[in-house]
């Protein structure tokens, strides 16, 4: 339990940092507001329109592919740690796992799913 003390400390420092910086800036900053200052800044472009615009589905595809390979990596981790006990048997089953996913990877490349058209 005591091993989590640094984690707790980290969380507290993180929360404290956020609270202190936001708190201080609301207290000590001078406020001279005008219309230009209050407008949303977006690289000089007039920020108009709804923030809930629709995205291109291409972003979603990248996100889905990321999560799938993320899960693959998650499976690799306990395998790598227990590899010595699993031996050759473990190696073969992981190669099988990776091969099946590799088929998906080649499909992805063939379909040019990651190319930004």
């Amino acid at each position: 339990m005591l091993a989590y003390l640094p984690v707790l400390l980290f969380v507290l420092v993180g929360l404290g940092f956020g609270a202190v910086t936001i708190g201080l800036s609301t207290i000590i900053v001078p406020r001279r507001e005008n219309a230009v200052k209050n407008s949303a800044y977006e690289c000089g472009v007039e920020p108009v329109g709804n923030a809930r615009g629709r995205f291109s589905v291409k972003f979603y595809l990248v996100a889905v592919l990321f999560i799938l390979f993320d899960i693959e990596a998650v499976f690799l981790y306990p395998w790598a740690v227990s590899f010595h006990q699993l031996g050759l048997y473990g190696l073969i089953e992981m190669v099988l796992f990776i091969l099946i996913l590799l088929a998906g990877y080649f499909y992805l490349l063939k379909k040019r799913a990651l190319e930004w058209e």
Partner: peptide, 25 residues
């Protein structure tokens, strides 16, 4: 987890790769 997952629950683990493949496609 690795010791159990890659011995006793080997079949579900391998099936997971099919699931991931299906999701990818």
């Amino acid at each position: 987890i690795g010791r159990v997952l890659y011995s006793r629950f080997l079949f579900p683990f391998e099936i997971t790769s099919i699931l991931l493949l299906v999701a990818m496609v």
